[in-house]
Nucleic acid binder design. Structure first.
Lengths: 207, 207, 207, 207
DNA sequence: GATGAATGAGGGTTCATTCAT
DNA sequence: GATGAATGAACCCTCATTCAT
């Protein structure tokens, strides 16, 4: 679907407000005001508030096809190295799209949105399989330990990020992250390193 | 504050609905209907919907004072053992109170709720300090490694749990968790074990 | 269903406006304003505009159970006399309830209102059967002619009334009916007499 | 006023929808969609929805100038015969144009449409006068009875037709009129005959 | 103390219309 | 001349809350 500039602007504002205030907590009037468009445009362009959310999700999710495979297939690099890169890539992507993830997490429980999240679930399944394959390869090559709950690795990865994100104020205070840039930096270095350590500790024999 | 039976019933229903549908997505009518009480009761007892949320949070949070210290001070047990117990206790408490945590996470961003969450933040700080003290003791005793980002341990702990919880459907499907009991069981064993392994891998020299 | 004074007032105003402006042409705001009640009361009492219409129809229709049978069974009176009374009664009732009939006629085509009009259709069928029985009796008793299309008698009866009503201005002008009272008088005498003549001319051998 | 093909198409669709759903119940979007033209065309061609209605009425009404006089002046035919033809012609015309009549009847009450209906009223007056003249001639010629309410004859004529039309479902069911053709046939024969009988019974000395 | 009735504000959506091209 | 985009007003309805009892 082609989206014009105004539609993209609406999506951007909607993403921001939905992430901050929740879907139910955001009124179309707020979106219209902040996007500086007439309120009727939202129905005009998207049909309804509900469909705006769907369009937002579909549009954003189409943009973050993961290239996990690119990393994994570089078999000239060590498993350990590739694991590091994989964690780093994951965090990068999630951080970049954290708002849309936040919306997904909120709305995931909603029994009315099953269909919309099919895309999300499919991608989730796919990513999991890619990771699983990689880890099993590493285990066969005796680079990775075997007593690990593979299916819970992604929760640890993404969960850590989001619990940090949800409690950002706490870390802003304690790490003195005064600007958005500081936060980005923190995610890219400290947080990523923490997760790389965690994954390596869980999976490899290094210390 | 003393709460009578009806008030407790309202809180129970509110907790359930706020967790499932979000604060904004839940109407006082729904709460009143599901709690089988008159609509006016909510304003009457709590003042407003907003204050109902506050009361809910305060009341629930007061009930889960962590006894981390009880675990930590048992210095006849090994650091490793105490770490295990600590993880287990944390997960137990969070799982038991997952609905209230879910509400907190949703509403934490809301700029209007600063005051309400003071309690949460205080407790968070306190728990962090207790954990930090314990880990630093362990590090001094050379039972724990030093190259670990202590402040990110709790995000990993709680985050893993919640990412599992938010994506429960995925795990229900893949682990065939057909009942609430199966899920509780899974949390108590597999998930807890995964996190214990993770913490031990990160902190101890064992393998 | 019990209706309180305010509900009855709303129904009265709704009946008037629906009859004058049509269902679609009337806004709940107009009804609220003219009934001097808060706009939210309409949803509060009736659920929706649609259900207000249904309630209105059901309530009004329940009130005009015809007592045609009472007339017909008085077999001490001549067929001719009973025919006269029957016409008179019909017109009285329709005139009294002309607004609700008008609404029914407008909305009868609407494919969404099938169920609501079941009552109307049932009553219509019943009235028709009563009339048919009476006329067939009269025919057997050789009081009535047989070359008459019984099923089209009611259209002639009601149709004449309503075409008069829809074009009331024309008659007001030509008959100088300056007040509601004049109109009522006209219906009761001239119009009723016209229809009695018509029915007698069609059915009896009198002249 | 000259109307191009698109304008005629719009009028045709508008007539259909206004008759089925009422003026207020029809949106210009519906008309535009069903007529397969751009929404803006309606304002562009007709100025407004209101003016579209006016144009529709004027245009359709200009097409049904009655040729009652043609019938009446054929004084070589009996009054009775001419009365029959007159009824038949009336019904034909009304049946052919029943949609526009339906619209007129709905909107006739509306106080905002006085001017639009001038044409209708004028025609009505004219038709009435023609009929009145004819009947008075017949009365003078002693072909027609004198104790008849001339002004109420047209209500009986048109009213019977429309009450049949408004309750068409009832007759479709009872006369098994399965197609539009069956209905047309019914109007042309049974209904017309009923009204001819009615008029003859009221006006002539025949039996 | 407790509650059904009632309220004003705001919700999402659709309306007829007009603008810019 | 014709049209897709855009608009402000109004639509019906539901919201959280308060009133009167």
């Amino acid at each position: 679907m082609e989206l014009n500039d105004k539609q993209l602007q609406i999506l951007a504002v909607a993403e921001k407000l939905f992430a901050e205030l929740g879907y139910a907590g955001t009124s179309v009037r707020q979106i219209a005001k902040e996007a500086d468009i007439n309120i009727a445009m939202i129905s005009y362009y998207f049909g309804s508030k509900e469909k705006l959310l769907e369009q937002l999700l579909v549009h954003r999710m189409s943009n973050f096809k993961f290239d996990l495979i690119d990393i994994i297939k570089h078999d000239d690099r060590s498993y350990s190295k590739r694991l590091e890169q994989l964690v780093s890539l994951y965090i990068q992507r999630i951080h970049k799209n954290n708002r849309i993830y936040r919306i997904i997490h909120s709305e995931l429980q909603s029994p009315t949105r099953n269909q919309t999240f099919e895309l999300y679930h499919n991608q989730k399944d796919e990513n999991f399989k890619t990771l699983e394959t990689f880890i099993k390869q590493g285990q066969q090559a005796e680079a990775f330990k075997t007593d690990v709950e593979i299916m819970l690795l992604i929760p640890t990865l993404i969960g850590t990020y989001f619990h940090f994100k949800y409690n950002q104020d706490f870390f802003v205070k304690n790490y003195k992250l005064d600007s958005k840039k500081d936060i980005d930096q923190f995610v890219e270095t400290t947080l990523t390193k923490h997760l790389q350590s965690t994954f390596k500790a869980l999976l490899t024999y290094e210390n």
